[in-house]
């Protein structure tokens, strides 16, 4: 369905962007986040209707916003779910050996809900520089999400909150058209194959404090538990399986095991146990081990590499040149 922007009621809106500001924000959403016209129109209309710009984080964005914000609050996106839906060529994998990371998709039956956090900037606390702050937010978001690991499409979705009603949030969604798309368990890889990749993958050195697949997914489960989010059974099972495979890896490939554990130990804060970023995982490894595939982790990993072609960077040299052009633009100071 095509949604046209309707600015005719601008006089009734609490915040009115100038034509120039509207074009600036629309241009940034198009150029840096490649958002389609309908979603751009919905987002810009919402900025004017509410005087606010909101992102919805359900993964690492929850505790690590891409930009400064004015306010954060919890919410649930009805009809959406998260999972290991995307390949990763930077943070949890490399262009030479891709990893597996989080994405969100609409649920197949339209039920359920994705818990997360809204991060909002608003015109109310601003000194007339609101449009430029929105632009900076979009650019910071793009620099983090699209400049090295362009796996998502950016959608505007409804998020239900306790005290702020239903708000619209900009969200990173898994994109079935993207060559870095993996999909739900069984779509390209089984849950066991994804777990084997998570247990054995590492990101580009220095790309992230959670620089192995295992550290990222462990942290995610722990953060959701601390945050009181409804446990996601698929993710709990996936990470539990990955723990089993990681333990197997010590025997199957001691060198790789030692390398991954060393990366995790280097990034772990003081007081954390070996291999765990800051706390024990909450899933019961003994429980999931009963359902683990009896094949060795390296067999599973090799099967996954073969089924999902994880040793081929899907980005062409032309894609990478284009990404580098955008990255240079995004890193340049904003002059307005």
């Amino acid at each position: 369905m095509k949604i046209e922007a309707d600015f005719s009621g601008a006089a009734d809106k609490p915040f009115e962007l100038t034509e120039e500001e509207r074009a600036m924000i629309d241009g940034a959403l198009s150029r840096y986040l490649h958002m389609d016209e309908a979603d751009r129109a919905v987002l810009i209309n919402d900025i004017e209707l509410t005087g606010g710009f909101r992102q919805f984080g359900y993964g690492s964005l929850i505790g690590d916003p891409s930009s400064e914000n004015d306010k954060e609050y919890g919410g649930v996106a009805p009809g959406w779910e998260k999972g290991a839906f995307c390949k990763d060529r930077h943070y949890r994998g490399t262009p030479e050996s891709l990893g597996v990371t989080m994405g969100a998709l609409p649920t197949e039956d339209g039920t359920g809900g994705l818990p997360g956090v809204i991060q909002e900037i608003n015109a109310g606390s601003d000194d007339g520089n609101f449009a430029n702050r929105v632009l900076k937010n979009i650019k910071d978001f793009a620099l983090r999400e699209t400049s090295l690991n362009p796996i998502y499409e950016y959608k505007v979705i409804d998020v239900e909150t306790t005290r702020h009603g239903t708000v619209k949030g900009l969200v990173c969604a898994a994109d079935p058209k993207n060559p870095l798309y993996l999909g739900r368990d069984g779509e390209t890889l089984t849950i066991e194959e994804k777990a084997a990749i998570i247990a054995t993958s590492k990101g580009v050195p220095g790309a992230s404090p959670r620089n192995t697949g295992m550290a990222y997914w462990r942290d995610h489960v722990k953060c959701c538990e601390l945050g009181g989010f409804e446990p996601d059974e698929n993710i709990q099972k996936l990470v539990g399986l990955a723990e089993v495979y990681r333990a197997q890896l010590e025997h199957d490939d001691p060198k790789l095991f030692a390398e991954l554990v060393a990366i995790e130990a280097k990034n772990a804060p003081a007081g954390a146990k070996e291999g765990v970023t800051y706390a024990d995982p909450v899933y019961d490894v003994a429980m999931v081990s009963a359902s683990a595939d009896p094949r060795r982790v390296l067999d599973l990993r090799n099967g996954a590499i073969s089924s999902a072609d994880l040793l081929t960077d899907p980005l062409s040299s032309a894609d990478i040149r284009q990404i580098n052009v955008l990255k240079t633009e995004l890193e340049a100071p904003t002059m307005h």
């Binding site: 929850i62 505790g63 690590d64 916003p65 954060e72 919890g74 956090v117 306790t162 953060c223 601390l226 945050g227 009181g228 989010f229 800051y278 706390a279």
Partner: peptide
């Protein structure tokens, strides 16, 4: 100490 720390996540679960 930080929204990205255990304290920050724990508060998400009990702030309401």
């Amino acid at each position: 100490d930080s929204m990205a720390s255990p304290a920050g996540y724990l508060m998400l679960s009990i702030m309401e």
